[in-house]
Write a protein that binds this DNA or RNA. Structure first.
Length: 670
RNA sequence: GCUGUUGUAGCUCAGUGGUAGAGCACGUCCUUGGUAAGGACGAGGUCGAGGGUUCAAAUCCCUCCAACAGCUCCA
């Protein structure tokens, strides 16, 4: 199969943005903000300090980044965090020396000579130790462009700047981490050491930065997940495989109920499909073998496996047989596409093909088969098939992260099959669902990205008229949403435009959730059709949508968004009754029974602890409502209400409390 | 996957060559206390796994496993 027919639709999150290969012009680079300028200078000062300590260091590049700066370099000594103190002390000295940053324009020949001698990116000439990376970087500078360098103290670096005037400005600096990187981000090139640091103009800002980091750490969903017993990841089960514990299951279930309710309102039909499907299904869809590397290996049935082993097949042979495609399927796919999408080299004779199953990496093929299980009339379109569908993908181990990057996850998935004229309305429907859900959760800070085709690129298939229509639909839908959106040409999937949701959490971090994608390709590959009003067969358009990406990821973001303080309707434990003494046990039992009968998730703490300890525990467990019951309440027949965030709310009647809380839950108040 | 760091009780961590510790949580008992920690006693660990060095390894070395950070923001 030569052409990837369907990209990994609705991947959990975006791949890292590939490094742009375009060079910035000198003018563009000069447009650094003040803080970037400061941090860039800090990178030079760090390089100076490292050279004083380890003169053999070869520097590559050291830019300012979002929260600080780094410099990549190569040397004998391996930096560890233990070295930071030493380097920082040296940097402090350099700052005190108040070295002037001086710009110098030099010729290509001068630059090369300085690099050859080891002077560029060094404190002095270093015979026998030429500045290899700088030499390479000089070669990358286009002919005719001004080559410039900056000098502070003895350190001269190839650098377009800009810089602060004097090193004295760089006082409030802290090194944060060390890691490895590849030269030019290319893993075939040299492996470098990278030291990260951050810098601010004042001590207060530097400290505030670390306070923010602490805040982020406190609300880390992995930490809260453990503390609040929401989920567990077990080595024996496997990396990236989530075990939802009872508390987390409640959170997820409530969220699913909410989304399902909205889907029903919008005319979706719920379906269920199995977790595996035959290989041929994914050969038809195009997911196999193109995404083989990011999928779990095929599952081969015992008898088939015994047979090929009996025939003496080695591993490579088995893989080849699994990956082959029948001549008939190839013919079908090529005919449907009207061009060669599967080349002949992938074909194996039928008696050599080895069939197997795959853990599904996406739900679309299954939903397509449901759509195609009966003749469809234009009268029943759009068909909207929704499923909280669990899929499995082989993410690299280093990519795994808590709930936000996992190997098995459940998408809030749906596939819409509609006529071309319906695309606009359906895309709009998808967006409004997202809006409702995010607003209900108080996540009002989000933006959408509309991925359009690049008209100059040939990678986008299909006819231009369809594209224009679909793009207009996406653009118009995004515009009516009333949230900021950006149009990004070239960012479309090759088979159709898409809309991505990026939400910003309370502390300003952005999270990419799901996408809505218009697809003209899969209906062709699966030869889908419906009968139009003209009594002729037509090709439906498919829309893939998983607006929240996956339940795992979304719950992870929610945990951090709320810092574990969920609104009552989502809270695993909504009310905890705290007794002051044994004297009110009977009264507490009665209240407990009443709340339970009202459908609240309530627990009763009759431990021998003092009330202060019980309150503390309930606060730590982030239970929204605490009912303090003592003799006073028993006598009055009321309850003392304490809210985890609002504190003591005083004595209320049980009826009043019940009415308020059940309404709060029913209306999903924040 | 690559680079680095880390892995000791359910949790947070101390312990750097001489056969394992604290706090919290847990269990039992005492205490019946009014809005963020009452007290006593007790139980709990083949120190991530495997191998090696050593008279002796949680500690040093190697391999593996896992977690965390980075590997993208371009002299």
């Amino acid at each position: 199969m030569s052409e990837p027919c369907t990209p990994p639709i609705l991947r959990q999150n975006a791949r890292p943005i590939p490094m742009s290969t375009e060079r910035k012009t000198l003018d563009q680079r000069a447009q650094m903000s003040d803080i970037e300028r400061l941090r860039h200078s800090c990178a030079h000062i760090m390089a100076t300090a490292i050279l004083r300590l380890w003169p053999d260091a070869q520097f590559a590049y050291g830019p300012p980044i979002e929260n600080g700066f780094y410099y990549d370099f190569q040397m004998q000594h391996r930096i560890t965090p233990d070295d930071f103190e030493k380097i920082e002390a040296e940097m402090k000295k350099i700052s005190k020396e108040n070295q002037k940053f001086e710009w110098k324009g030099i010729s290509r020949e001068e630059a090369k000579a300085m690099a050859e001698s080891g002077r560029l990116g060094g404190l002095s000439e270093r015979p026998g130790n030429p500045s290899i990376f700088k030499l390479d970087l000089i070669d990358k500078i286009p002919e005719g462009e001004q080559i410039s360098c900056f000098q502070n103290g003895d350190f001269i670096d190839l650098c377009a700047g800009p810089h602060v005037g004097y090193s004295g400005k760089c006082k409030h600096v802290k090194l944060t981490s060390v890691s490895a990187s590849f030269y030019m981000g290319d893993e075939t090139k040299a492996s470098l050491q990278r030291v990260y640091g951050t810098a601010f103009e004042s001590k207060e800002e530097l400290e505030a930065h670390f306070v923010r980091l602490e805040e982020a750490k406190k609300r880390d969903h992995r930490k809260l997940g453990k503390e609040l017993k929401l989920f567990h990841i077990d080595e024996d089960v496997g990396q990236g495989l989530i075990l939802w514990t009872p508390n987390g299951a409640i959170l997820r279930q409530e969220l699913q109920n909410f989304i399902s309710e909205e889907l029903r309102k919008q005319g979706y039909s719920q379906v269920f499909t199995p977790h595996i499907g035959k290989l041929a299904l994914y050969k038809t869809s195009g997911h196999f073998p193109y995404y083989k590397d990011s999928q779990f290996a095929a599952i081969v049935e015992n008898d088939d496996l015994a047979k090929v082993i009996h025939e003496g097949c080695g591993c490579g042979e088995v893989m080849a047989r699994l990956g082959g495609i029948s001549a008939k399927l190839r013919q079908q796919l090529n005919d449907r596409a009207g061009k060669e999408v599967v080349s002949e080299e992938n074909v194996l004779p039928d008696d050599q093909l080895l069939d197997g199953f795959m853990l599904k990496p996406m739900n679309c093929p299954h939903h397509i088969k449901i759509f195609d299980s009966q003749p469809r009339s234009y009268r029943e379109l759009p068909v909207r098939l929704a499923e909280f569908g669990t899929v499995y993908r082989w993410e690299q181990s280093g990519e795994l992260n808590g709930l936000t990057r996992v190997r098995g996850f459940t998408q809030d998935d749906a596939h819409l099959f509609c006529t071309e004229d319906q695309v606009a309305a359906e895309v709009l429907g998808c967006l409004s669902l997202v809006k409702i859900v995010l607003n209900t959760l108080g996540m009002t800070d989000y933006r959408v990205r509309v991925g359009l085709r690049d008209p100059d690129s040939s990678k986008f298939t299909g006819n231009p008229e369809q594209w224009d229509k679909a793009e207009d639909a996406c653009r118009a839908a995004a515009a009516t949403l009333g949230v900021p959106f950006t149009e990004e040409p070239g960012e479309a999937a090759f088979y159709g435009p898409k809309i991505d949701f990026v939400i910003k959490d309370v502390i300003g971090r952005e999270w990419q959730l799901g996408t809505v994608q218009v697809d003209y390709v899969l209906p062709v590959r699966f030869d889908l059709s419906y009968i139009g009003s003209d009594n002729k067969s037509h090709r439906p358009v498919m829309i893939h949508r998983a607006p929240f990406g996956s339940m795992e990821r979304f719950c992870g973001v929610l945990i951090e968004h709320f810092a574990g303080h969920f609104p009552t309707w989502l809270a695993p434990e909504q009310v905890r009754i705290l007794t002051i003494s044994e004297k009110v046990d009977t009264f507490a039992d009665e209240i407990f029974a009443q709340l339970k009968a009202a459908g609240l998730r309530v627990t009763l703490n009759q431990d021998a602890d003092k009330i202060g300890a019980k309150i503390r525990n309930a606060q730590l467990d982030k239970v929204p409502y605490m009912l303090v019951l003592g003799e006073k309440e028993a006598a009055a027949g009321g309850v003392s209400v304490r809210h985890a965030k609002r504190g003591d709310l005083g004595v209320r009647s049980i009826a009043e409390f019940l009415a308020d809380v059940t309404a709060e839950v029913r209306e999903r108040k924040m």
